[in-house]
Amino acid sequence: MKNSILVFFILFSFTCLAQSTSKDSVETRWQMFTYDIGNVFKGIGYSYSRPLHWTGKGWATFGYTMGGTGISYLVDTPTSKYFRGIKEDVPNVIRDYGFNYGSPENNYMVTGAVYLTGLISKNEKLRRTGALLISSASSAGLLQQILKSAVGRARPLSGKNKDTYRPLWAGDREFHSFPSGHTILAMTNAHAIAKQFKNGWVKTGIYTLGSIPAISRLWEGKHWLSDVVLGVAISIFTVESIDRYLDSKYDQKYNDNAKKLSWNLNFGPGQVGLHLEF
């Protein structure tokens, strides 16, 4: 499964190579590497500083996100029961993919492969994509680790209810539920890669692959629905923030004329879904 994930990202890298011609061949790879790594760290810092610059629209978006998370919190118990009940009906290959794709070691293996392909080929678009993937995963990943330890929410598989917390309790993994780390890593990758394409069907396929690890956390009993919802929101906001920063650092832009992505949660009898428009 790990190899299949890596193959997907290698194929993606070659697709980007076919779409873009390098314009920076006069620079040495060491110069490119130091420039890119600098942008990775600056991008992380930029994403953390954004709340200090929020205006009315930014705070409104934050409010909508908290509202959506709160609504999903109300149905955490029945949705957890439903998804855990269908676990044995899910094919093993999908279950394995859901776990492996969202794990940190696999995430950095594949995002590193994208960046190294761009560095070796001196392809700015791939280098920028790699920088976006690495900085987004690092920024959102660190944030979720802090939140998990600070909030100390019990996981569904612990046998405790959704309202059980041990704030600032970092020693017990059963109290590291909020938000979902697998969701964050998978969706930061999906959102960053989907920005490379204009075709709606391609985007849909990428987001579908990215959503499987998120949903897998529900049937595995690792997270509640509200953990996953907030994880998706953190992923999208982090990628968008760092991508705007990288716009000022690289000539290659992503689909300048493309529509902005919008998203909302859909609830219905026996179902829950994330609706994306692009």
Rank of each mutant, 00 (worst) to 15 (best):
K2Q: 13
S4L: 11
I5Q: 07
L6C: 01
V7D: 08
F8T: 10
F8M: 12
I10A: 09
I10C: 04
T15K: 05
C16F: 04
A18G: 06
T21L: 10
D24C: 12
D24E: 15
D24S: 14
S25I: 13
V26H: 13
E27P: 00
N39K: 07
V40E: 00
V40D: 01
F41K: 00
G43R: 02
G43T: 04
S47Q: 12
Y48V: 09
T55I: 00
K57A: 14
G58D: 10
G58W: 07
W59H: 10
A60K: 15
F62M: 14
Y64L: 14
Y64G: 01
I71K: 08
S72T: 15
L74K: 07
V75N: 06
P78R: 13
P78W: 15
T79M: 14
S80V: 06
Y82D: 13
R84C: 13
K87P: 09
N92W: 15
I94H: 00
R95E: 12
N100C: 06
N100V: 11
S103N: 08
E105Y: 10
T111V: 06
A113E: 03
Y115G: 05
L116R: 05
K122F: 10
E124S: 14
G130A: 04
G130W: 04
L132A: 07
S135E: 03
S135F: 00
A140P: 13
G141S: 04
L143H: 04
L143K: 13
Q144W: 00
I146V: 15
V151C: 02
V151N: 03
R155C: 03
R155N: 03
P156V: 11
P156W: 13
S158K: 06
G159Q: 06
N161R: 10
A170E: 03
F175L: 04
H176R: 12
H176K: 14
S177M: 05
S177Y: 08
P179D: 03
S180C: 08
S180L: 02
G181E: 04
T183R: 07
I184C: 05
L185Y: 14
A190P: 14
A190T: 10
A192P: 06
A194D: 10
A194K: 11
K195L: 13
F197R: 04
F197W: 09
K198E: 12
N199W: 00
N199S: 08
G200S: 15
V202D: 01
K203C: 03
G205P: 03
G205Y: 01
I206K: 05
Y207N: 10
L209S: 09
G210N: 04
S211N: 04
P213L: 10
P213V: 08
S216Y: 00
S216M: 02
L218K: 03
W219M: 01
W219Y: 15
K222I: 00
K222N: 09
L230V: 08
V232D: 07
T238P: 12
T238D: 05
D243M: 03
D251V: 11
D251C: 02
Q252S: 15
Y254T: 05
D256K: 12
K260I: 00
L265S: 06
N266F: 00
G270N: 11
Q271G: 01
L274Y: 06
E277K: 14
E277R: 12
